[in-house]
Design a binder for these strands. Sequence first.
DNA 1: CGATATAGGGATATTTGATATCCATAATAT
DNA 2: ATATTATGGATATCAAATATCCCTATATCG
Lengths: 162, 162
Amino acid sequence: MILKSQIEWVLHCCAILAGLPDGRYLSTKALAELHGLPKEYLSKALQSLSQAGLVHSTLGPSGGYRLARPPAELTFLDIVEAVEGKARTFVCADIRANNPCRPKGYCDSSPCAVARIMWEADEAWRQKLRSVTLADLGEILSRETPPAIWNDTFEWVLKRAG
Amino acid sequence: MILKSQIEWVLHCCAILAGLPDGRYLSTKALAELHGLPKEYLSKALQSLSQAGLVHSTLGPSGGYRLARPPAELTFLDIVEAVEGKARTFVCADIRANNPCRPKGYCDSSPCAVARIMWEADEAWRQKLRSVTLADLGEILSRETPPAIWNDTFEWVLKRAG
DNA sequence: CGATATAGGGATATTTGATATCCATAATAT
DNA sequence: ATATTATGGATATCAAATATCCCTATATCG
């Protein structure tokens, strides 16, 4: 069970968008170049963000994406779920129902204990992702990235932002 | 990102094995029939448990599997990792290294912040799975399953256990 | 000893999802 | 008008999940 590589892509893209001045947009092309990613496929991932309402897009030259909300109001979970879907990682096929010792037509009153426990673990994962925002990420990155690279990067980005 | 269906299979199989009297073994055939599963494929999953040292197996007629440790010492995480592997669910391809603004040959001193956060969420998931044992599951199931079904099931099982 | 039932492992097939690429369309800036 | 962009649909490729089959060694039972 491994997350799509697109998850890494969009998280880094959102980190860049979070540093964009108000009203500016950054294109798929620029984001793909900056991260060394296939432009067409990255585009699909960004479209997922757009459909989830996490980013706002605009067309034409100087078009692209910007965050739809302040970085402090966008969580890792928002982004992960936009790309990966909201479905739980454990799917219960209710195999207990196949037990030949069950009375015919018997129906369980509550979900299987196995599923409930697996879903609790899933929820613990989501809770952790929900607790980290793009603002948190930006704070960490600006602290850890060497200032020269950090500044060059945003200069590079602003030169291409519409 | 969805867990293998085998995860549900082996968790239910282990719940049954946890209720087996000391020294008795239950075969793949019986476990497959009890849960309505393809015997050959379930066998692969049980082999994973065996290779991970979670169950002990024996050959021949009356052969099969039993738990290798007391139910209180077998966690959900043990079982999930035996089948799903121990690899983290988020794989960092280090795409930040593709940033054209980086000095040539520059090497990061620590893992990317994005990866660290994703790994923390992964660890929260594992921690939850680590906190639940087969003994816990058995306690819940014995409390929630109607006694008639519960007793019939173990009668059914013991009739087939070697 | 011989027949039978079992785990284990290897080879292979099928289906599904991830990873892409390409193209047509509509919108927008210059 | 022209160029550039997001969007959505169609299609191709590759890896993983989901099986199935067969062979071998081993253990039990008569």
